[in-house]
Design a protein around this nucleic acid. Sequence first.
DNA 1: TTGTACGCGTTATCAT
DNA 2: ATGATAACGCGTACAA
Lengths: 331, 331
Amino acid sequence: MAVTIKDIAKHAGVSYSTVSKALRNSPLVKEPTKKKIIKIAEEMGYVPNIVARSLVQKKSYAIGVVWPTVERVTPSALITKINELLEEKSYTTLLSINSVDSAIATFNRFQVDAIVVFAETMSDLTRSKNVMSKVPILYYGIKESSEYPTIDVNRRHAIKIAVEHLVKIGHTKVSYIGDVSTQDHLQKEKHLGFLEAIDEFNLDLFSKSIVPTNGLELYDGYLAAKSLFNKSTEVTAIVSGSYDLTRGIVRAAQELNINIPNDVSIIGYDNISQSEDLDIPFSKVGVPLNRIANKITETLLDIINENNTNNSIILEPELNIINSCAKPKNN
Amino acid sequence: MAVTIKDIAKHAGVSYSTVSKALRNSPLVKEPTKKKIIKIAEEMGYVPNIVARSLVQKKSYAIGVVWPTVERVTPSALITKINELLEEKSYTTLLSINSVDSAIATFNRFQVDAIVVFAETMSDLTRSKNVMSKVPILYYGIKESSEYPTIDVNRRHAIKIAVEHLVKIGHTKVSYIGDVSTQDHLQKEKHLGFLEAIDEFNLDLFSKSIVPTNGLELYDGYLAAKSLFNKSTEVTAIVSGSYDLTRGIVRAAQELNINIPNDVSIIGYDNISQSEDLDIPFSKVGVPLNRIANKITETLLDIINENNTNNSIILEPELNIINSCAKPKNN
DNA sequence: TTGTACGCGTTATCAT
DNA sequence: ATGATAACGCGTACAA
């Protein structure tokens, strides 16, 4: 049997409502009494029963994170950061790896104060429309869903400004290495960004302009880059679709004695996190992870407190150029 | 305001205790009444409030999973499987990526029925000793903790029987490719297993007997294998420390036109899951993921129902030999 | 400053 | 077969 405030009250010789106040640090209870009660509570190993509290308060100070894609790409670093930020605001984060539908139902039963959904496929989303949720929901990664609050990163624009930068410093033969399968909406966006840039900046669409990969792993980037370097000597700059791909590309270049950035410049797409220890630091484009995490956390709290904010937030990417990795084309 | 059984009672013209019984499918309520109530509940979009239920029942039908290492190796496939099995038993799985301590505290507050801890470092574990938990805890992956119920995989033995098999079919020059950094307890176990096998089967400890990697990614295995193949022509069999490493090794072999298993046999450590689509299927040693998941789920339920089971369960690995990947040494 | 009484949504027990 | 009521642990008006 867990210890309750009533047990504490007995030991302290006060009423249990006094204990409640003391533990909530209410000014309505004298300092010495408070101290004494808190001490006894600690000694008895008291843990507040959130269940009871949220019944009466109709708040649980918990946020539900729906993350059906543990095995896929939504960066766990993002989840970790959000968890940290929420903890600072004294919210608890609960994760569910069930389907969107069933996770939302569960979190409703548990009376969480808000839900964030990290869904990556359209089917994840469309199915979730059937579920009614009393708890407010915030979606991440799906621009289309306009009827719910949504946060997304402008991946298309990210790739575009990467190409733009390369053009500005003199490159004309730019390749895109990325997963261009049409299944994954996020990858498709980046692909589109590259195509738009090609068009807008009047670049040649040469034979190896777009190098498709068969996945998003380091090795996929490595293979793609090797095929690129072997079959085309024209290319002077590469835009890469993801962090791991970029790492693979860098490894391939090293192996073939291709110098970055003298022989080829490279800019990788990456929702940049502060503390990455890369073999070689490279230029990046994307939204800093912390900015995404902050925006999500902030919006979550706004939603809970019913500050009606913008329903659909698109985070704009930023370029992060490291000179050693993207330099003007040699003449 | 969410709809409660009282609201349903009003609409149905019965008392709310009858509604409660009907919804729980109690035999104490007549079939037609039951049907009617259930229908009304659905129409009104009723969602049972687990919070209130667990207050009175002192059970939440929820299991807390402490998973502080999302970013590391504990396979998410395992978590996914456990989640599935628990769902079948009508338990809900809640994940926390906080530190072991704080996750345990949180789950206590939420009154979960049991907790599983996936901790990989010793420090994760030792810190958690300070927390008292009213809720029973099951640890995975840490043999040493004998004061709590524990489930672990015998990684040391796994590597050993892999080597044993290779020796039996005639190999004498066997290499181990794996992460042998002393930090990670799990990797250390495998390394020890190889050393013990070398000793037990009187194998040569030649220059490339042990090829250390700098990580557990595909590319790390690829690099290690390349270095092995380039510098040693003696080796006829390889034992690999993890799934991704094995994939990298296979890639390296393909690239160098080294035939598996004619030129070299390979057995990879891997907690085998049923449905892996590999480029090339290869021989494995390990405990099937489903067996681990089943054992964990089963033990969890035992603990909840206070069936006192063995406190410390070690799962023994099995060999899974595919002829095309490990064959007797050519003479 | 402290104590009493009520309510949160549900289940369980007892009475009708 | 159904209804009334107590209890779960906590927070909060309101009373003392």
